[in-house]
Design a protein around this nucleic acid. Structure first.
Length: 267
DNA sequence: TAGTCTGTTAGACA
DNA sequence: CTGTCTAACAGACT
């Protein structure tokens, strides 16, 4: 489930499983995942130790001592898991870490990408160059400067050049916390609204990261993921806050979930 | 069968 | 140049 929070969970896992160690074996099952990267070059990089697992927005960054960076993007259904077999379902790329297991890039829909960049290529890499500040760093001024009055707030927050890492789920959840109607435009926010927005965004991600980590542990024991969202995917349920009903509506081309009672007028 | 889905980008259009 | 919408990418699920 790749929004910022899920990518951060993978980053923390890779830090534990992989940092300081090199792969002893590499299997490329789906070359489409690699696109511009030759499998041989990837294999060579993976067989040197990982120096750091980083993240920027929804991009996962695997740094090597050579200065090379393996950039992973999971799009809709990609993820990295640790497995005791090399090729579980939907495996696209696997590398073996001694004493840990197979690290597997899984991706049901095959939209995810892995690309190996040289140090200078990484410094100039456009998608990262264009990216806005992380939610924990963004200021009200950043947002107000980047957002025109008539633009939907939802569309603005999903624009990765304004703020990095916000996805469609996060928008619904953050709007619910702020009691904002789904179609509110940037011009309709007052100063305290912007202030609360920059406070709540990082709080939301922090909380979801923690709950996802805890959930993963629970999943290993109980075999079932808990639903950690308040409104997203909850059409028809009662609002956890006011017992109004959760509605679903297309906003900016994609589904928004919101409480019709406590999130202002739904328009 | 048609519509849906956590993301991103290109092209059409206003 | 701005912004919005759609299709496309690719596959599974309802």
């Amino acid at each position: 489930m790749p929004e910022l929070a899920e990518v951060e969970v993978v980053r923390r896992n890779l830090q534990r499983w992989w940092e300081g160690r090199a792969a002893h074996q590499v299997c490329v099952f789906d070359e489409q995942l690699l696109r511009q990267t030759p499998p041989d070059a990837l294999t060579e990089a993976l067989t040197t130790p990982l120096t750091k697992a980083g993240r920027r927005g929804k991009y996962l960054l695997c740094h090597f001592a050579t200065g090379q960076v393996l950039v992973l993007h999971f799009r809709m259904t990609g993820k990295v898991i640790c497995s005791d077999v090399a090729e579980p379902a939907y495996a696209r790329l696997s590398w073996y870490i001694e004493g840990q297991g197979w690290l597997v890039f899984k991706d049901q829909r095959r939209l995810g990408r892995a690309r190996l960049l040289e140090a200078d290529e990484f410094d100039a890499y456009e998608p990262l160059q264009k990216m806005g500040p992380e939610p924990e760093d963004v200021t009200t001024e950043d947002l107000q400067n980047a957002c025109t009055d008539r633009r939907l707030l939802k569309t603005a927050l999903l624009d990765q050049s304004i703020v990095a890492g916000v996805g469609n789920i996060a928008v619904s959840e953050i709007f619910w916390r702020l009691k904002l109607p789904p179609r509110i435009t940037c011009g309709q926010l007052d100063e305290p609204d912007w202030q609360r927005l920059v406070e709540v965004m990082p709080q939301y991600f922090e909380e979801i990261i923690e709950r996802s980590m805890a959930d993963e542990i629970l999943y290993l024991e109980e075999g079932e993921m808990e639903d950690i969202f308040e409104v997203y995917g909850h059409e028809g349920d009662d609002c956890p806050r006011c017992a109004g009903e959760i509605k679903k509506q297309k906003v900016g081309g994609r589904s928004s979930y919101f409480c019709e009672t406590c999130q202002g007028l739904s328009q």
